[in-house]
Simulated assay, not measured.
Amino acid sequence: MSLYSILDRIHAQAKQSRLLRDFAVFNRIALAAGFLPSGYVKIAGERFTNLPVCHPMGHYLDAFYQTGYYYTFVGIMQILAACLLLVPRTAMLGAFIYFPIILNICILSLAVRFEGSLITSPLMVLANLYLLCWDYDKLKFILPFYRHETI
């Protein structure tokens, strides 16, 4: 039995569970709630935090703020990802856009040992991975181990 047929079977069983489906909806709402306020702050051109520049995270966020339109662009992408997550038809695209942003936040938080998101950012990465796995049936065609069956 091939790897993709095993994953197909596991995924099909998981999709039948109401608890797992409700957990996916919860994750979509929770992740959107995490990005809507922070994205809005960036689009509004306000500083994201009041951390002092002597703190490693404060120094990074100050430099990030100073980039100008890149800061705004990240805010727009956060709002876009959050809004897409809230619409069932576009939730997979939202999770796909959300992943690199939250992974970057997580790695940065761990690298500078920022206590403000040492727990939340890895949990958000895991929640986002859950959503990507939830949509495995839509994403499997771009995975390197998936082979199209010939008829």
Rank of each mutant, 00 (worst) to 15 (best):
E115I: 12
C83V: 12
L143W: 12
C133A: 07
L143G: 05
L132N: 02
I43H: 04
A81V: 04
L51T: 03
I119H: 02
Y130M: 10
S109M: 08
N50W: 14
Y70A: 12
I151R: 05
L20G: 02
R147W: 01
S5G: 00
H148D: 07
C133P: 00
G94V: 04
I142W: 15
S5Q: 07
L19I: 11
A44L: 02
S2R: 09
R89E: 03
N128E: 05
Y70H: 02
R28T: 02
A30M: 09
G45W: 08
F48V: 12
L126W: 05
V125I: 07
I43K: 05
I6Y: 07
D62K: 15
G116P: 12
Y70G: 09
Y65V: 13
A24N: 02
R89I: 07
A82V: 01
A12F: 00
D8Q: 08
S17L: 06
G94C: 05
C133G: 09
Y98K: 03
S38W: 14
I105V: 15
L7N: 11
P144T: 08
H11P: 04
D62Y: 15
V112T: 11
L108N: 13
F73P: 10
L129D: 00
L110F: 05
F145T: 04
D135E: 10
T49A: 10
A12N: 12
R113K: 12
Y98E: 03
A24E: 01
F114N: 11
A24Y: 04
